[in-house]
C-alpha cells in the first residue's frame, strides 16, 4: 500500500488544468481524457488511482484518507476548514471572494449600512468570518446555487460569492462592494498519507511546485 497513490480530481472547470499539470509532472493521465463518465479510474502499472468528484467534496475525500492527494480551490478549503495538508498553490482556477450587492443599493457607500442585513451565500463560514471582522452583525442565509438571484428577488441585501470574470454579477446588475480574498487551486494531501507515503509524494510535490512556480496566476 505504501507505493500506491490515489488522487482526487475536481469535475468541472479545474479539471482540464489539473489534468495538464499532472501529465506534465509525468503522471499517467491518458485514461482520464478518454472517458469522462467513470468516477474511479485506475492505472495498475503505476499503482495509481484517480477519483473524480465534485470540487466541494475533494477536501472531504482527502481528509478521510479516501484520497492521498487532491486538487481543490482555496475557496473550498477555507470554507470547509478541513484537516488537510496544503502543499502547493497551483496558480490556476483564480477567483475572488467578494461581497456583492445591487448597484442602486451600493452607490459607493459603506457596507455598514447593511448592519443586521441578510447575506446569501454558498460559503456561510467565510461570510460570517468576514462580517465579524468588519464589526457587523448580519444574518447569513445558506443557499446552494444561483446566489446572484437572492438580492434581485429581495431574499437578501448582500451576497458573498466567488467571482472569476464578473459576468454573472454584471448580468444581474450587481457590483462587488468589497473583496474578501483571492483564491486559486491548491494541491492538498491527507495528513497521514503525507507521512506514510512520503517517498512517493515528496518528489511529485517538488516537481509540481517547480512546474507552477513561474506560471502566471489565471
Amino acid at each position: 500500500m505504501k507505493d500506491s497513490l490515489t488522487i482526487a480530481l475536481p469535475k468541472g472547470k479545474l479539471f482540464p488544468d489539473a489534468l495538464d499539470l499532472l501529465a506534465t509532472a509525468g503522471l499517467w493521465t491518458a485514461g482520464l481524457r478518454a472517458d469522462t463518465r467513470k468516477l474511479v479510474i485506475e492505472y495498475p502499472p503505476e499503482r495509481l488511482k484517480y477519483i473524480i468528484c465534485r470540487p466541494t467534496d475533494i477536501p472531504t475525500y482527502v481528509e478521510y484518507g479516501a484520497a492521498d492527494l487532491g486538487i481543490a480551490g482555496k475557496d473550498t478549503i477555507v470554507e470547509q476548514d478541513k484537516d488537510v495538508v496544503e502543499l502547493v498553490d497551483l496558480r490556476f482556477g483564480f477567483c475572488r471572494f467578494v461581497v456583492a450587492l445591487p448597484e442602486e443599493a451600493f452607490q459607493g457607500r459603506d457596507l455598514t449600512q447593511f448592519n443586521h442585513g441578510r447575506v446569501a451565500t454558498k460559503f456561510p463560514r467565510v461570510a460570517a468570518a468576514f462580517f465579524r471582522e468588519q464589526g457587523m452583525q448580519v444574518e447569513v442565509i445558506k443557499l446552494h446555487g444561483n446566489i446572484e438571484l437572492a438580492p434581485v428577488v429581495g431574499l437578501a441585501d448582500l451576497i458573498v460569492d466567488i467571482v472569476s470574470t464578473g459576468r454573472t454579477l454584471r448580468e444581474n446588475r450587481l457590483v462587488a462592494g468589497a473583496e474578501i480574498f483571492q483564491a486559486t487551486a491548491r494541491l492538498i494531501a491527507n495528513r497521514v498519507a503525507y507521512r506514510l507515503k512520503h517517498q512517493r509524494l515528496q518528489p511529485l510535490v517538488a516537481c509540481v511546485r517547480e512546474l507552477v512556480k513561474d506560471q502566471p496566476v489565471r
Binding site: 500500500m1 505504501k2 481528509e63 478521510y64 484518507g65 479516501a66 491527507n190 495528513r191 497521514v192 498519507a193 507521512r195 506514510l196
Partner: peptide, 23 residues
C-alpha cells in the same frame, strides 16, 4: 511532526497506519 505547541519539550511522535486517515 510537531504535535501542536502545548506542553511538549523534546521528541514528539505520531503513529499512522494505512486505511485510517488520522494518527
Amino acid at each position: 511532526v510537531l504535535r501542536g505547541f502545548d506542553y511538549y519539550t523534546g521528541v514528539v511522535f505520531e503513529g499512522y497506519t494505512f486505511g485510517v486517515g488520522f494518527p
